[in-house]
């Protein structure tokens, strides 16, 4: 039986967006990257901006994002994705530009680029996948690794006296005047998946208005790096990551009406 036979007479209600290639994801089972990729590309398709969107991939697990996202893309050096995105946006101000980065990339080696890009209020979207670990290089400690969390380079657990505290870079970003919309989301439940998609939509709408940087943190998991099953990893994330990195909006644009009431 062919697939077409099986769907004969049925209505097609769900499929891969044309903005994703048919290359299978290389991500581990249970990893949040695949969902985040798909949501981002669904939004690009639904908004009809495939021809006007340029993405920047990082160094990290999502280094090959350009294998999957069916749009023009650039692969940046480790930590430099927001600088590369700045270069693109400055010469193509009418295009939609985003960077997609992990915690090591954005919050360790690329901290300066991240902060200054947002501080300039570059009209781009920065997607920040935070799973508290270096996944691609095999599970080393990240800037966002929790206190006591065991990784291959914190084998006795992260000790804040030796290496400092997990960096809440999104909270730092939110206070910068250049940041227009800052939110922290996840992809662990159907409800949260819908919320993240909404955040992507808003960010591209805001980018059209040239208001400043939109910054979306996605608190995610790393079943392989954490040494857990996908189910265990999601449970661990909810019990340990969410209390330290609480989900929700950190900065939302005020509506005209709200501004009016503040002035009064």
């Amino acid at each position: 039986m062919q697939i077409n036979d099986s769907i004969e007479g049925l209505e097609l209600v769900y499929q891969r967006p044309a903005t994703l290639t048919d290359t299978p994801f290389h991500y581990c089972p249970g990893c949040g990257h695949g969902v985040a990729h798909k949501l981002l590309m669904e939004v690009v398709e639904e908004m009809g901006i495939q021809e006007n969107t340029i993405g920047v991939a990082p160094v990290g697990c999502s280094v090959f994002a350009y294998h999957y996202m069916n749009i023009d893309m650039q692969e940046a050096a480790h930590g430099r994705a927001s600088a590369v995105a700045t270069g693109i946006k400055r010469v193509l101000p009418d295009k939609f530009v985003f960077s997609y980065q992990g915690d090591g990339d954005l919050a360790a080696i690329g901290t300066a680029e991240t902060i200054h890009t947002v501080n300039r209020g570059e009209n781009i979207l920065i997607v920040f996948i935070n799973n508290g670990i270096y996944g691609m290089t095999g599970g080393q400690m990240a800037p966002t690794t929790l206190i006591g969390q065991i990784t291959s380079t914190s084998p006795y657990g992260r000790d804040e006296k030796l290496i400092g505290y997990p960096l809440k870079i999104t909270d730092m970003i939110a206070i910068l005047p250049g940041a227009f919309y800052v939110t922290r989301q996840s992809v662990n439940t159907a409800g949260n998946v819908r919320k993240l998609k909404k955040a992507f939509q808003k960010s591209f709408e805001f980018q059209k208005l040239n208001k400043g940087t939109c910054f979306i943190e996605v608190v995610s998991n790393c079943p392989s790096g954490w040494g857990m099953t996908p189910v265990e990893a999601n449970k661990w994330m909810e019990e340990n990551m969410f209390p330290y990195y609480p989900l929700g909006d950190l900065k939302v644009p005020r509506t005209e009406k709200e501004k009016g009431s503040n002035n009064a």
Binding site: I54, V56, Q74, A76, A77, R80, A83, V84, A85, T86, G87, I88, R90, V91, L92, A112, E113, H116
Partner: peptide, 12 residues
Amino acid sequence: AAINMIYGASGA
């Protein structure tokens, strides 16, 4: 940052 902006803008 400057040289990576160059990368992005030249690539564009």
